[in-house]
Design a protein around this nucleic acid. Sequence first.
DNA 1: GATGAATGAGTCTTCATTCAT
DNA 2: GATGAATGAAGACTCATTCAT
Lengths: 201, 201, 201, 201
Amino acid sequence: MVRRQARGQQRIAEILDAALALFAEVGYAAASTNAIAARAGISPGSLYQFFRNKEEIAQALSERLVDALRTAHADAFADRDVVELPLAELVERMTDPLIGFNVANPGAKALFGNTDMPAALAAATRPLHEAVTGRVAAVLAARSPQLSDAEAVRYATVAVHIVRALMGPIVAASEGEREVLIGELRRALVGYLAPIDALSV
Amino acid sequence: MVRRQARGQQRIAEILDAALALFAEVGYAAASTNAIAARAGISPGSLYQFFRNKEEIAQALSERLVDALRTAHADAFADRDVVELPLAELVERMTDPLIGFNVANPGAKALFGNTDMPAALAAATRPLHEAVTGRVAAVLAARSPQLSDAEAVRYATVAVHIVRALMGPIVAASEGEREVLIGELRRALVGYLAPIDALSV
Amino acid sequence: MVRRQARGQQRIAEILDAALALFAEVGYAAASTNAIAARAGISPGSLYQFFRNKEEIAQALSERLVDALRTAHADAFADRDVVELPLAELVERMTDPLIGFNVANPGAKALFGNTDMPAALAAATRPLHEAVTGRVAAVLAARSPQLSDAEAVRYATVAVHIVRALMGPIVAASEGEREVLIGELRRALVGYLAPIDALSV
Amino acid sequence: MVRRQARGQQRIAEILDAALALFAEVGYAAASTNAIAARAGISPGSLYQFFRNKEEIAQALSERLVDALRTAHADAFADRDVVELPLAELVERMTDPLIGFNVANPGAKALFGNTDMPAALAAATRPLHEAVTGRVAAVLAARSPQLSDAEAVRYATVAVHIVRALMGPIVAASEGEREVLIGELRRALVGYLAPIDALSV
DNA sequence: GATGAATGAGTCTTCATTCAT
DNA sequence: GATGAATGAAGACTCATTCAT
């Protein structure tokens, strides 16, 4: 039984890998479930044994991203606390794992870096976006206790949108150009956040 | 003959209106040509008398946006020159017509505010993006002559991405929330551009 | 009024020219009436002022072929009578104008050299085929009075089918190869007809 | 699994049967894939599980014909060798299975007896025509070793065209008329081939 | 007579999803 | 659980033909 579930988990992982890879290549809409199944080495019917529909795949993938990001985030702040860092370094530490993940999994763009998704996809990826935004809001609130919840969320939302907007170009850029763009992204974030960051003077 | 062509022009306008409205509701991919035709009050065949394929509709729509933006931009700077304004006001003047247009035509988001388009759409809307980015780059270069071309284009690209990223939320927001978001957008742009704007000391 | 009709006749001729040219390039089925009209330099509506439907164009074209062939045939036997010639020369004289016409108007293949036409086309071109077959049958009967009508028609039908079958390759062949194929066609016809030709000993 | 594939093979056969029947009735161009599917008792989507497009159906059908003809040909010469027969009997033995097959499957005319095909069909059926012509050329060469390859192929091509040309009438004819036409076809072939057949004195 | 927009059924093909085995 | 055939509603696009001007 454990064996069973283990195999099931592996199948699920394989499907998600296949989906992510396909999303990277052709985008969410153009990635057919049959193609995902084929790339995962299973039959279409089997795919539907694990996911009720295409949307659920995106959902599961989103959850996987949430987990990965949670871990990365925790790692990034393992040694120092969020309130001890200068803003520039904070931005760097928060931004780096996100970029790293997206560069490593370009398919994530379809879930994270997309601004105009079909309604279904938007719904499926909402938890991902909320998780990311929530974490950022928490950090901002921690550093600037005078912020209301609404303000923290608003600033976080804007900041996350900026990150998402530049993720596409960053992932698509050549090695060299990428560094430059990452620099610009950080500069934009610092420029935006400095005025509302209590720890920045 | 003139009558004919006048009617033709009107049909084209009606089709583009219908397409824009549908794009606003369901996005580019989900807007079927048959649905566009139906909404324009014509038959599918008629649509193809004016556009060779779906992509061409997006293209024509893009051109319409380019024209509208060119006009709006010219109007915005009719009285004062680009190099005479403080950065904050410059941002406001450049940003306002864009926002106004997008709020009035929410379908524009599918063409302008989208980050992950099907290849065909991306090709069709490239001129639009280049026109917008080019205009911004020109303004930046005019204010900061020490910038290389590449730098001007890079800063403009990033700035435009930021605008596009926030256009979705701005358009979707309620009246009140919208103003707040617009304020944040401006703050983000000023924060990003001030360090490289020669006129901002 | 005469002027009117003259212009009408010319329009008809232009349409038929356009149709023939298009048939040559893409075949009957793929030649759209709109394309024919465009190539004739008129509007689709105008085309239907002269022909009630696509089939009628093929019909008119067939009639034109019938006329052309009648003339060519008459010319070919202006100096000598059909019963005075050796079979080989007879075949040559009957075959030459047909080949000449088809080489000059490759579109004719769609009407004459086709074996498996849509029912409508077959009906429209029947008169053409009957005219050609009828003429051949008449010649055969003139030379071999002992043939019954049915026999003359049957031999003529087979002979014409052979000609049609080889017309495609002949028209498509290069200059040099063409002569060889024409030779083979003649040999085939002579071989087939000699046994039933009273004048061939 | 074997069961599965067996069913697949049967479906393919059913589709090809349906296609052949429809081709017989309305020709290749007018036979829609939906109609083929309907006649095969399946949905349009199912058809595309076995064939990537309409052309591939024609291709598969051609291959089926090639196989059937190969078998028939082999049977026809099981007892005697090709070089031992008088020309008239050779013609009969080569011609009979072809006629038999076409009479039994009148749709074959669309693939085999057609002279003016859409480009796609022509490509799909080339192997069929080459197989038939090749076999005839081989027989001619075996009987007349002095023939060059080019000559053998040329004579074979012409002979096959003659057969194709008369196949339509033969298939369409009534029982009685058919025999007569078959006789004429043989006579035509013998008349054409006798002069170049070394074994016919 | 001419124009060209309009029609709408029909074409090939795709794809998310289901179901018998 | 797995398989892969089956489904059928769309989708983009075409084309012979009609009709208002």
